Computed example of a mutant assay.
Amino acid sequence: MLNGILQSLRTGLIPGNRNADNIDRELETFDYALFLSKSVQTSGIKAGLLKSFGFGQVGGELLVVHSDYLFATLTQDQLEKYNDRLEKRDVKASRYWQDTLVGNHSFVQVKSHAPFTAEQDKSVYLNPLARAKYDSKSGEYKF
């Protein structure tokens, strides 16, 4: 669902529900409820609200705001630094994808063990600031 909201924020396209063919008449009387069966292209979406209702009355809610509003709060210098870092990430991601396509490694590299020892697990789980660091010599993440 989050991926769908992110795509809608990026493209302005609101996907329709192709299976919305038997909406109860009572629901159709609300002025602000919209039941789309076809996609709608907008000039842009500013935000999206994601609601998830789980088992046992447990649910979550997430407000996703378009990145333009975040970037508008940055100074020119901060924005340039961010764009430089973004460009470097894009180059690394492209290189990784190319290496995957030519068979240098698999796309998903499954870990065989946690990046911490059994003795460290309590301190890792109880420390919200605990972060693993990549060790280029071993090719693994470690504490």
Results as ranks from 00 to 15, higher is better:
residue 32 Y to M: 08
residue 103 G to Y: 07
residue 60 G to K: 11
residue 94 S to K: 10
residue 143 F to K: 01
residue 138 S to V: 07
residue 107 F to D: 06
residue 122 K to S: 11
residue 121 D to C: 15
residue 58 V to R: 10
residue 132 A to S: 11
residue 66 H to L: 03
residue 113 H to G: 09
residue 16 G to M: 03
residue 27 L to A: 11
residue 37 S to C: 07
residue 93 A to P: 00
residue 22 N to A: 15
residue 30 F to I: 07
residue 132 A to K: 03
residue 142 K to A: 14
residue 88 K to P: 01
residue 28 E to C: 01
residue 64 V to D: 01
residue 31 D to L: 09
residue 115 P to G: 04
residue 24 D to L: 01
residue 30 F to G: 07
residue 111 K to N: 12
residue 44 G to T: 01
residue 13 L to S: 04
residue 26 E to W: 05
residue 77 D to M: 07
residue 121 D to H: 12
residue 104 N to R: 13
residue 137 K to A: 12
residue 108 V to Y: 09
residue 138 S to I: 07
residue 108 V to A: 03
residue 138 S to Y: 03
residue 91 V to Y: 04
residue 67 S to W: 06
residue 34 L to D: 08
residue 83 N to H: 12
residue 62 L to D: 02
residue 53 F to L: 12
residue 30 F to R: 06
residue 132 A to Q: 04
residue 110 V to Q: 14
residue 98 Q to V: 06
residue 81 K to L: 15
residue 27 L to Y: 06
residue 113 H to S: 15
residue 45 I to T: 01
residue 27 L to I: 06
residue 61 E to N: 13
residue 34 L to H: 15
residue 119 E to M: 06
residue 21 D to I: 14
residue 126 L to C: 05
residue 46 K to H: 11
residue 136 S to C: 09
residue 51 K to E: 06
residue 33 A to H: 10
residue 95 R to M: 10
residue 48 G to H: 01
residue 55 F to A: 08
residue 26 E to D: 14
residue 92 K to H: 11
residue 19 N to F: 13
residue 6 L to D: 06
residue 81 K to N: 15
residue 106 S to T: 14
residue 16 G to A: 03
residue 119 E to I: 07
residue 107 F to I: 09
residue 110 V to W: 11
residue 71 F to N: 12
residue 70 L to F: 14
residue 101 L to R: 04
residue 60 G to Y: 04
residue 127 N to S: 09
residue 129 L to I: 05
residue 16 G to Q: 02
residue 134 Y to S: 02
residue 12 G to C: 01
residue 59 G to Q: 05
residue 102 V to T: 13
residue 129 L to A: 12
residue 64 V to S: 02
residue 38 K to C: 03
residue 143 F to E: 02
residue 42 T to D: 00
residue 19 N to V: 12
residue 82 Y to A: 15
residue 103 G to R: 06
residue 113 H to M: 11
residue 57 Q to P: 00
residue 57 Q to F: 12
residue 62 L to K: 07
residue 36 L to H: 05
residue 110 V to N: 10
residue 11 T to G: 03
residue 83 N to G: 04
residue 129 L to S: 13
residue 27 L to V: 08
residue 24 D to C: 04
residue 134 Y to H: 05
residue 75 T to D: 07
residue 61 E to S: 14
residue 35 F to N: 02
residue 1 M to R: 10
residue 64 V to N: 02
residue 86 L to W: 09
residue 124 V to F: 06
residue 4 G to Q: 08
residue 24 D to W: 00
residue 122 K to C: 03
residue 23 I to T: 09
residue 85 R to Y: 13
residue 86 L to Y: 10
residue 72 A to C: 00
residue 140 E to A: 11
residue 15 P to S: 08
residue 58 V to G: 05
residue 132 A to L: 03
residue 131 R to H: 05
residue 106 S to E: 12
residue 139 G to E: 05
residue 30 F to A: 11
residue 27 L to N: 09
residue 22 N to H: 14
residue 129 L to E: 14
residue 92 K to L: 15
residue 140 E to R: 13
residue 19 N to W: 07
residue 11 T to C: 03
residue 68 D to A: 10
residue 10 R to N: 13
residue 73 T to C: 05
residue 141 Y to H: 04
residue 47 A to M: 12
residue 92 K to N: 12
residue 137 K to T: 13
